[in-house]
Design a protein around this nucleic acid. Structure first.
Lengths: 231, 231
DNA sequence: CGGCGTTATCGCGTCCGTGCGTTAACGTGA
DNA sequence: TCACGTTAACGCACGGACGCGATAACGCCG
């Protein structure tokens, strides 16, 4: 008769499947915060959901996120260059998936709109769902994300806003290395869902920005100075 | 020949062992922030480490934390009453454990000293390691925690401090439902590692406290008013 | 009962951040 | 070259927060 598994035996116990889910957040040209959703195949076919995937053998979570976005959404590695998924929360309800015991590690990933728009435009199974009050407005008649993914969106929006209160464009949503204060301010106003007075914004941000000593001209008016993030 | 695993087949891929680790944080009577460490048996026998355990079949992470503290440290359910472990980060380096592929979900749990002291006193394999600059001063000659657990301590201290900047005693470290402003202030000064001016502290905290309309007397001087947290 | 010690409260000067009106700077376009 | 529009910078009034000294309140103890 086999001995009972000892607690330190690593294979002694059933293991969960581990999945990653990712809220890919962007800002549309109209100034709307939005999250990438994918129309599912297989389980819950037809429903819009956040991209995700099961973790493969000895795979890092961040790598799983990148591969999920590549395989499911067609986003090449170049689209993710310089962007780091951030862990939000582990969802561990053993009943959360009909197919078996799954733990899902939810992530936040900020991407500039330019890296997403072509893919979203050319595929009917991708969409950008606007964020309203920490919830997504999904295309069609679907009200809620499956698998309790609404909670992931809330975690993601909260974390995004916390970070945007602390430093200029931490998720690199602007997409460009150099930007004007007005561009940065519009972005922060979008993410935080509240306006900034330009003097206050300038005072708060300048210590964390580096002047490029260049300007953006081409329109009437004084050219705007361009900045980079200091780190 | 068996077909290749389809991506949605839940059992199709190897799965990691999932472990929980927990930084149990408390404040000693001398006003020192400290974290519970346990002398290991089995793998890395003799070394001090944070408590933790592999997750059992269909077990919730928070339950695993509680069971780990009960089984490894002798902390009964009563010791954890009202305390909720908070997820900090998933450590997913496939090489982090010699025994195989392990993902560890690190947690923070605040406990009042009174719930720990008897257990620590009666067991030679438990200790409270003081926190200095987001690192632990381990007993004996051991400099570092194994398995990269030093990073867990840093996450835990950062999260603790962030929370103590936002509300009065969110982790319930005082242990009592009712407390004086001086007690609360001393606690916050310990956690945040910096003092508070009493007027400023009072102004900041009172909106989040409820007066009990009782006082603590028994020593010379004006009796201190007692408060509860408003939520 | 009064002195003492401790906590609570208060008045107030100072400092700092905000936001607004004004001025300056700088391209664009006629 | 000048008017215009936009951005940047500035001066400053105002309000809020801070911290300190002073005062009040309240048990304890002799």
């Amino acid at each position: 008769m086999a001995r009972s598994p000892r607690p330190s035996d690593i294979g002694a116990f059933p293991r969960p499947s581990v999945a990653v889910d990712v809220a890919v957040v962007t800002v549309q040209p109209d100034g709307q915060l939005a999250v990438l959703v994918l129309r599912r195949t297989g389980d819950r076919a037809g429903q819009w959901a956040l991209p995700g995937r099961f973790v493969r053998d000895r795979e890092r979570l961040a790598d799983s996120v990148a591969i999920a976005l590549a395989e499911k959404c067609g986003l090449p590695a170049a689209a993710l260059a310089g962007a780091t998924p951030r862990q939000l929360h582990v969802f561990d309800d053993p009943a959360r998936d009909d197919r078996g015991w799954v733990m899902s590690v939810a992530h936040l990933l900020g991407l500039p709109y330019e890296r997403l728009s072509a893919h979203v435009a050319e595929r009917a199974d991708l969409a950008l769902a606007p964020v309203r009050e920490r919830r997504l407005q999904l295309p069609g008649r679907q009200r809620n994300l499956p698998y309790g993914q609404g909670a992931i969106v809330e975690y993601a929006v909260d974390e995004l806003r916390r970070r945007y209160l602390e430093e200029p464009d931490p998720e690199g949503l602007l997409g460009a290395d150099e930007f004007s204060l007005a561009e940065l301010r519009d972005l922060h106003a979008t993410v935080l869902d509240e306006p900034w007075q330009i003097d206050t914004f300038r005072r708060n941000m300048l210590p964390a920005l580096t002047s490029t000593d260049t300007v953006r001209s081409g329109t009437p008016g004084r050219p705007a100075a361009l900045y980079r993030r200091s780190r």
